[in-house]
Amino acid sequence: ENVVSAPMPGKVLRVLVRVGDRVRVGQGLLVLEAMKMENEIPSPRDGVVKRILVKEGEIVDTGQPKIELG
């Protein structure tokens, strides 16, 4: 899985990584606000952040790609 998608609709509060960052499985990639709760979205695997496809403040839909890992 190279693309991390939104598990639920919500607002991107914070992006916790930058392009080029090495990430580990379970590491937080971003914080999504859904139903007035903050949810940290974890990396599904070890890898390197290739692209960030969302911006802080953006509203995302379920299944929308957010971060691409290499």
Score class of each variant (00 low, 15 high):
Lys36His: 14
Leu32Cys: 09
Leu32Tyr: 09
Glu68Gly: 04
Glu68Ser: 07
Ser43Ile: 01
Leu30Pro: 00
Glu1Gly: 13
Glu33Asn: 05
Pro9Gln: 11
Gly47Pro: 01
Val3Gly: 05
Lys50Glu: 09
Gly20Leu: 05
Lys66Met: 15
Arg45Pro: 01
Val48Gly: 02
Pro7Cys: 12
Pro9His: 11
Arg22Asn: 10
Val60Gly: 01
Asn39Ala: 12
Gly26Lys: 04
Ile59Gln: 11
Asn2Tyr: 15
Val23Gln: 01
Val15Met: 08
Gln64Pro: 03
Gly47Lys: 01
Ile59Cys: 14
Gly26Asp: 04
Leu16Pro: 03
Val12Lys: 01
Val17Trp: 00
Glu1Ser: 14
Leu29Ala: 00
Thr62Ile: 13
Gly47Asn: 01
Ser43Arg: 01
Val4Ala: 05
Ala34Gln: 09
Val4Asp: 03
Val15Lys: 02
Pro65Asp: 07
Val54Asn: 01
Met35Ile: 07
Pro7Trp: 10
Ile41Asp: 01
Gly28Met: 12
Asp46Trp: 07
Val49Lys: 00
Val4Met: 05
Val3Ile: 14
Val4Arg: 03
Val54Phe: 02
Val31Phe: 04
Leu16Arg: 03
Arg45Cys: 13
Leu13Gly: 02
Ala34Ile: 14
Lys50Gly: 05
Ser43Cys: 09
Asp61Gln: 14
Ile67Leu: 09
Leu30Lys: 00
Val19Gly: 02
Arg18Phe: 08
Lys11Thr: 10
Gly10Met: 06
Val25Met: 13
Leu32Ser: 00
Lys11Phe: 07
Ile67Cys: 06
Arg22Lys: 12
Leu13Ile: 13
Val48Lys: 06
Glu58Trp: 09
Glu56Gly: 05
Gln64Phe: 06
Arg14His: 08
Val3Ala: 07
Leu53Ser: 03
Gly26Ile: 03
Pro42Ala: 12
Asn2Asp: 12
Val48Leu: 09
Arg14Pro: 02
Glu33Arg: 08
Ser43Gly: 02
Glu56Val: 14
Ala34Tyr: 15
Val54Ser: 01
Val31Asn: 00
Val17Ala: 01
Lys66Trp: 15
Gly63Leu: 07
Pro42Val: 14
Val31Gln: 02
Leu29Asn: 00
Asn2Gln: 11
Gly47Asp: 03
Val19Asn: 04
Arg45Thr: 10
Glu58Asp: 14
Pro65Trp: 10
Val3Trp: 15
Lys11Leu: 10
Lys11Val: 11
Asp46Leu: 04
Glu33Trp: 15
Asp61Arg: 15
Lys50Met: 13
Ile67Val: 09
Leu53Asn: 05
Val54Pro: 00
Met35Asn: 15
Val60Asp: 02
Leu30Gly: 00
Leu16Gln: 03
Val23Met: 00
Leu32Phe: 12
Val54Arg: 02
Asn2Trp: 15
Asp46Phe: 07
Met35Cys: 13
Gly47Ile: 01
Thr62Gln: 13
Arg51Gly: 07
Glu33Gly: 09
Lys55Met: 11
Glu33Met: 12
Val60Lys: 01
Glu40Ala: 08
Asp61Leu: 13
Arg51Phe: 08
Lys36Pro: 04
Val25Thr: 12
Arg45Gln: 10
Gly10Ser: 05
Ile67Thr: 02
Ile52Asn: 01
Leu30Thr: 03
Ser43Thr: 04
Lys66His: 15
Ile52Arg: 01
Pro7Asp: 11
Gly20Cys: 12
Lys11Asp: 01
